[in-house]
Computed example of a mutant assay.
Amino acid sequence: MALNVAKLRAQAAELDAQLAAARHTAKSPDGVVTAVVTGSGELVDLTITEAALHGPHPQEIGPAAVAAVTAARRAAIAVAAPQMRAVLDDKHPRRRRTSGPRPHRLRHRREPATRRRRTSKSWIS
């Protein structure tokens, strides 16, 4: 099976453009932070509610922002991963392991420690 590198590059560039144009939005569990990322996971917008900024616990904004960005990136990955597999999998079929024994792994075994007996005079020279 011959690999057409030019065609693969064109498909990858098209997919990259699609991912750059896509937007995925997610909110923090408490709803005070909203994050927007591109299809490739780049942060585009982060919105924090006024109530959170002027509320009694502004120290909770950081973890809420991390949770919102993480959720948005997970949504982006959930959409992008099948698209990437569609481009790459038909070009590069996965190598499947043949049924048979697994390759032997070399293991380093410790040699039993040999004890040297010290005589009472060995440290006196």
Score class of each variant (00 low, 15 high):
residue 100 G to P: 03
residue 36 V to P: 00
residue 119 T to H: 14
residue 103 P to E: 13
residue 120 S to E: 09
residue 103 P to L: 13
residue 12 A to M: 10
residue 98 T to K: 09
residue 56 P to W: 04
residue 97 R to I: 06
residue 101 P to D: 14
residue 9 R to T: 04
residue 46 L to S: 10
residue 77 I to M: 06
residue 32 V to N: 06
residue 42 E to A: 15
residue 113 A to M: 04
residue 96 R to F: 08
residue 18 Q to P: 00
residue 99 S to E: 13
residue 17 A to L: 01
residue 118 R to M: 12
residue 42 E to T: 13
residue 71 A to H: 02
residue 125 S to R: 10
residue 44 V to G: 00
residue 107 R to S: 14
residue 38 T to K: 11
residue 110 R to P: 15
residue 29 P to Q: 01
residue 11 Q to D: 12
residue 25 T to K: 14
residue 41 G to N: 09
residue 8 L to N: 05
residue 26 A to S: 02
residue 56 P to I: 03
residue 35 A to H: 03
residue 6 A to M: 15
residue 22 A to I: 09
residue 74 R to G: 14
residue 117 R to I: 08
residue 120 S to H: 15
residue 86 A to D: 10
residue 43 L to M: 15
residue 53 L to E: 03
residue 32 V to E: 02
residue 93 P to C: 09
residue 124 I to D: 11
residue 6 A to T: 02
residue 113 A to F: 12
residue 115 R to Q: 11
residue 114 T to N: 06
residue 25 T to H: 07
residue 99 S to K: 15
residue 58 P to R: 10
residue 21 A to V: 08
residue 84 M to G: 15
residue 2 A to R: 11
residue 48 I to G: 05
residue 46 L to G: 09
residue 75 A to H: 04
residue 60 E to Q: 15
residue 42 E to R: 09
residue 53 L to V: 06
residue 92 H to A: 13
residue 29 P to L: 02
residue 42 E to S: 15
residue 110 R to V: 15
residue 102 R to N: 15
residue 106 L to N: 08
residue 70 T to L: 05
residue 94 R to W: 01
residue 44 V to F: 00
residue 64 A to P: 12
residue 44 V to C: 00
residue 85 R to A: 12
residue 9 R to C: 09
residue 60 E to G: 07
residue 118 R to K: 15
residue 20 A to K: 05
residue 87 V to H: 04
residue 116 R to I: 08
residue 81 A to P: 01
residue 16 D to W: 00
residue 30 D to Q: 02
residue 53 L to T: 01
residue 81 A to N: 13
residue 49 T to N: 06
residue 5 V to A: 05
residue 13 A to I: 01
residue 52 A to Q: 04
residue 101 P to W: 00
residue 8 L to K: 07
residue 30 D to G: 02
residue 49 T to A: 10
residue 23 R to Q: 15
residue 69 V to N: 04
residue 125 S to D: 11
residue 23 R to M: 01
residue 114 T to M: 08
residue 14 E to K: 04
residue 36 V to D: 02
residue 102 R to H: 10
residue 116 R to K: 12
residue 27 K to F: 07
residue 27 K to E: 11
residue 78 A to S: 08
residue 37 V to L: 09
residue 78 A to N: 04
residue 74 R to I: 00
